[in-house]
Simulated scan of single mutants.
Amino acid sequence: MPDVQANGIRLCYDTLGDPAGPALLLVMGLGAQLIDWPQEFCEQLAGRGFHVIRFDNRDAGLSENRPEWGVPDIRAIVKGDRTTVPYLLADLARDTAGLLDALGVARAHVVGASMGGMIAQQLTIDHPQRVASLCSIMSTTGDRSVGRATPAAATVLGTPPAPDRDAAVAATVAAARIIGSPGFPAPEDELLRRARAKYDRAYHPLGTLRQYAAVTASPDRTAALGGVSVPTVVVHGADDPLISVTGGQATAAAVPGAELVVLEGMGHDLPRALWPRIVDAVTANTVRAGVR
C-alpha cells in the first residue's frame, strides 16, 4: 500500500472507487487499522459513487510509530498529569488534514468510527473547510459522563500485550465477543480471519496505548461541536458496551441539526447485516451537503 508524509508523519493509505467521485475519508479507531474497514463495506460505499480513502492513523498499522513518543502513564494521565502524553486527538486530526493535502483533496466527506469518530469531530472543529459532511459512528464527545463502558467492556482496554501470535489472536477474538453486536454475532471463523490478518499486517500494542493516552488527555468537545455547521449524522448501536449509546446521543445533541440513527442489536463493531443501513445513512448525509 502507498504512503505519504502528512503533518510530518508517514501515513499508509488505500483508495477504491472512482477517483473523479466525491472523496469519502474513513477514519478508524483505537489500535485499529485501515483493514478494520471491511473491504466489502468499502466497496458498497464506492458503489454509491464515492472515491473511498482509508488509512492507518499514526501508531497503528503500517503508518509511522516513533520510539521517542515514549510510554504514557495512563494512571497519571487520568489524574491530570499530562507529562507523558505524546500527542492529542488534535494532532491526529492534523495528520488527517495533512493526508488530504498530500492526496490533493480540498474537501472530503468524513466518516469516523469510535476513536476515529473523535478524530473526525476534531477535524471538523479545527479544519472546517476540509469537511463537506460528518458521520460519527459509535463515538462520543469527550464528556466523561456519557458513553461509559460496561465493566466487562472496560477490561478490554486494559488487556496486556500478548507474548506471541496465538495469544494475540485469541485476545482479539475474545475482545470482539465482549464488545461486538449481540444482535448480529459474527461467525467464529470470520473473527479468527480478521484477528490473524490484523496481527500479520502489524501489531503495535504500545501504539495503541499512546492513542488511548491521546483520547484520555484530550478535552471535552461538546461546546466546540456546537459550532459545527456541516451536515452531520451520528450512528450508534443501541447495545454498544464499550461506548454506550449515550455517547452518540450526546454527540447528536451537541451538533446543530445532526441526525441520530440508533441501530438495535448493534454493539461496538460494524456487523455485516447493518452495512446497507450505515451506507444509506452516510450517503443521505452527503446529499444534504449538496456537494455530491
Results as ranks from 00 to 15, higher is better:
residue 73 D to Q: 04
residue 258 A to I: 04
residue 153 A to D: 04
residue 174 A to L: 13
residue 144 R to N: 12
residue 259 E to L: 07
residue 166 D to N: 09
residue 170 A to Q: 05
residue 146 V to S: 09
residue 251 T to W: 12
residue 82 R to H: 02
residue 5 Q to L: 14
residue 151 P to H: 05
residue 140 T to E: 00
residue 44 Q to E: 10
residue 88 L to H: 13
residue 59 D to K: 06
residue 15 T to H: 11
residue 42 C to E: 02
residue 245 V to A: 13
residue 68 E to K: 00
residue 95 D to A: 12
residue 248 G to Y: 03
residue 148 R to S: 11
residue 71 V to N: 10
residue 175 A to M: 03
residue 193 R to E: 15
residue 174 A to S: 15
residue 82 R to K: 03
residue 34 L to Y: 12
residue 137 I to G: 04
residue 91 D to V: 07
residue 213 A to M: 12
residue 278 I to A: 10
residue 200 D to P: 04
residue 250 A to Y: 00
residue 30 L to G: 08
residue 223 A to M: 12
residue 152 A to L: 08
residue 266 M to H: 04
residue 100 L to M: 10
residue 8 G to I: 12
residue 101 D to R: 15
residue 72 P to A: 06
residue 55 F to N: 12
residue 238 A to V: 09
residue 142 G to L: 00
residue 150 T to S: 11
residue 205 P to D: 11
residue 63 S to H: 08
residue 116 G to I: 06
residue 261 V to G: 05
residue 68 E to P: 03
residue 75 R to Q: 15
residue 18 D to P: 07
residue 22 P to W: 08
residue 116 G to D: 07
residue 268 H to D: 02
residue 11 L to T: 07
residue 78 V to C: 13
residue 205 P to K: 03
residue 66 R to I: 00
residue 158 G to M: 13
residue 65 N to T: 13
residue 100 L to R: 11
residue 185 P to N: 11
residue 146 V to W: 05
residue 11 L to C: 02
residue 233 V to P: 07
residue 292 R to L: 14
residue 108 A to P: 09
residue 5 Q to P: 03
residue 193 R to D: 15
residue 206 L to R: 15
residue 194 R to G: 15
residue 65 N to Q: 10
residue 282 V to Q: 08
residue 1 M to V: 07
residue 79 K to R: 11
residue 19 P to S: 11
residue 189 D to N: 05
residue 1 M to N: 06
residue 60 A to V: 07
residue 39 Q to H: 15
residue 175 A to E: 00
residue 243 I to D: 04
residue 190 E to H: 09
residue 181 S to H: 10
residue 47 G to Y: 09
residue 261 V to A: 11
residue 171 A to W: 00
residue 63 S to R: 10
residue 188 E to A: 03
residue 126 D to F: 07
residue 244 S to H: 14
residue 232 T to N: 09
residue 263 L to K: 06
residue 207 G to D: 14
residue 119 I to N: 01
residue 128 P to R: 01
residue 51 H to M: 03
